[in-house]
Every structure is written in C-alpha cells, then in structure tokens.
Design a protein around this nucleic acid. Structure first.
Lengths: 212, 212
DNA sequence: ATCCGGTCGTGACATCCGTCACGATCGTTA
DNA sequence: TAACGATCGTGACGGATGTCACGACCGGAT
C-alpha cells in the first residue's frame, strides 16, 4: 500500500465524499480516514449539495457517486469544474455502464472507478488524481471505445426515456406533446438503431450502454 | 454510540461480511473494524462462499448483501441457518424493496437494514443481533405490511420474470415450454393484479414490490 | 364427495404496436 | 444555393398484444 504518498511534512489531501447511501458513505469515510495522508473534510448525500460543501470545506479531491438525488454525480462534476477548478473529481459507480465513462470525462472528471475494484486501490486513486494524473478502470475504457457514442438522436432519446416507465404510445405522446404517429416513428427508429425487439428491449439496451 | 457493548473482558464479536462490490466490502470492513468489540474475521464476494467461510471462521454474525453472484443473500441466509445455527444473520441491501424483508425473515434472518441508514447504527445493529434481538428498519416494516404478500401465482411470476428481458410472447412461450395462448393469459392476469398498463409496466411494478 | 384455485390450453376479438412510404419545416453544412 | 439530417406529421398495413369466454386436469381443503 501507500508507495506514492511518501508522507513527508506535506499537508494531507482534503477529500469530499458524496454517496446517497449513508452506510456506504460512512464506510468509505472510515476506509479512507485510516490513511494518514488523507483527511475526509466533507460528506454529502445529495448531488446538489456537492458544490457548496466542496467550496466551504476547500476540498482537493471529490469522490462522487453517479446515482444521487438532486442532480447526478456527472452533473455535479461539471458544476465543480467551473466553480472550483482546483478540485479534482473521481466518479465512482456501482456498475460498469460504459456510456457513463465517456460522459464523466466530458464533464471534466479525472478518475472513474467501479465499486468492485479492490478497496486498497481507492486510496492510491485519490493520491494519483490529486497529483494531476488520470485514473480509469482499464476494462471499462476498452468497452467504452467499443460501444462508442450514442446513435440515438435527441428526440429518440426522449421518447425512449419516456417509454422506460411502461406507458403506452398515447401516454408518451401526451408527455412530450407529440402526435402518436411521431412517437411511433421515433420509437421505430430507436428500436432499429439499438437492434432491440420492441421498445422495452430498446430501452433496456440503451440504458445499459449509457445512452439515456 | 456504543452503549450496549460495555466492552469488558468479553470476547469480541466474530463478523463475516458478504458484498459483491469489493469497494463497499472493504469499506464496511474498515468501518466495523474500528469498533473494539467487533472482529471482522471473513470477507466474501459471492453468495455461495458464505457458508464455507462462516463455518471455517466460526462467525457469530453474518452481514449479507442481497445482490450477489452465485446465490443471493437470502438463500445464503437460509443455508447458514441450518449449517451454522449459532450464527445470526443481518441482511443489508441497497434499496427498500418491501418484499425482500418478508423473504429475509422467512429465511431466518435476524436483521434487515437498508444502505441509507446512518453508518453509526450499523455497529449497534450487529451488537443487538448478536444478543439475540431483532433489528428491522421501521419504515420498511410498515411498507412491507402495506404491500403484503405477492398476489401473483408461481406461473405468473415465471412469465413476468421472463418478460423482463424484453422478449416477445413467442420467446417467453419457448423459454417456459408453454403455448402462446397460456402465456398471454398468465400475462393478462399479472397485468390485472399489478394494475400495470402492459407487461413491461407490470414487470416494473412487481419488481419494485419484491414479487420477482 | 364436492368445491375451489392454480395450471394449461383453444379460439375469437378489438386494440396496440412496429414498419414503411411520403411530405413539410428548419438549421447546419458544403 | 443546394444538400443534408433532425424533427414532426399523416396514412396505411400486418402482426403482436391484451382481454374474454370457455373447457380440461389436478391437488388440497371443506
């Protein structure tokens, strides 16, 4: 362990942790708090609290989960980049949706970690990111390139997202203020592009690829 | 904090932690390892490793996540109750599906905790369970009673589960070796009982209630 | 012995869904 | 300007889907 830190008189890394699950949040805090060169200076459970907490606690590094109430971790990362440019961001999420990686990087994140990486690597990731390096899960990086950008247009994405809750075409048309025929056309295009068998299938595929 | 333990010369609680996400597993271990009266004696990432690890480490309490490869936490709890009756089980899961609580209790679990409870409560839950008490998230208990048992018959559940992957009726019929008409009937019944608008909707509703 | 619910099946029906061809508008690009 | 793709719409077609009525078989409960 350690290795990179060298832990001389240098001031410790000021870390913010954001995760909606209090148990995980507290556990991560306990895990990283054991490291002598890391100080956990803030813990939040909502995406829209990240910016305020990070600025007032003067965080050096922010560890953000994607799934959070308020705004998600990627949007929070984008906000942080403009509001507190000196603060590096690591996105940590439960499962490897390759589309998330691309979006996280576009939002200015410096690191991307899935929750089934060994716990010992996390502290090193924080240190590397603090030094200005990038940390990306290698398996995910390859997958991200293979799947690439979303082939769906903006409207097709909207329609698929509305279809996810299980409503009928009439429902979707009402929500998006479109004609039913248009909804059918967009859905048909989305089904073709995702190679799904129906809209439920297409929504599932698109979601797994991070296209929603 | 603490309070219940009193931490005299009594031997520490021997704890097993099972979670498929290595990061969460390690973090929980770090969190609970800070308690003087708790020893984390085993960590596993698969449900089918729980029994072996618990017996060979002589665990007093097992902390089991539900979502795990191999077998899920509830099945692992049931195995543990027969193989190692002296070992108490706490089920800890990401989100409050009320149906899980009932099934966990039927499997012989002594505690049920959702991951957005405060981290400080976890150690106390372990201590209480070790003393033979039950620990159940109160909000979830109320919800569980409200939603109650699954109204779906066994076959209806099978059909809905097969429908979840987005296949057509013909696909489902092939998977379950049924006629297409029967599949339509089971699906229609399931849609009626769940008050869904179509099978995708019904599957979503049933899943949220823990009926799958 | 009888009733009841779950399971499996058939057939028919109205509706919904996915696909296609086609056209109009608009902003961007070549 | 011309070409292009995204968006929105109409109309029509075949097939998939959801509903209903009905019957048969079986095991468990009354």
């Amino acid at each position: 362990m350690s290795g990179t830190g060298s832990a001389a008189g240098r001031p410790p890394i000021r870390l913010l942790i954001a995760d909606d699950q209090a148990l995980v949040r507290g556990a991560l805090s306990a895990l990283l708090g054991l490291e002598p060169d890391i100080d956990v200076v803030a813990e939040v459970g909502r995406g829209d609290e990240v910016q305020h907490a990070a600025t007032s606690a003067r965080a050096d590094v922010a560890l953000l989960d994607i799934e959070m109430p308020g705004i998600d971790g990627i949007a929070a990362a984008a906000n942080l980049r403009t509001a507190l440019p000196g603060c590096r961001v690591i996105i940590v999420t439960t499962f490897g949706r390759p589309g998330y990686l691309r979006r996280a990087m576009q939002a200015g994140a410096s690191g991307f970690i899935v929750k089934d990486t060994p716990a010992a690597q996390l502290a090193d990731a924080v240190r590397r990111v603090h030094q200005g390096l990038r940390v990306v899960d290698p398996t995910l990086a390859a997958e991200s390139l293979a799947h690439g950008d979303s082939p769906l247009t903006e409207r097709e994405t909207d329609v698929l997202e509305a279809a996810r809750t299980g409503g009928s075409i009439a429902d979707i048309a009402r929500i998006l203020h479109l004609s039913e025929g248009t909804v059918r056309n967009h859905l048909s295009n989305a089904i073709g592009k995702t190679a799904g068998r129906n809209r439920a299938d297409a929504a599932r595929i698109a979601e797994n690829n991070g296209w929603l």
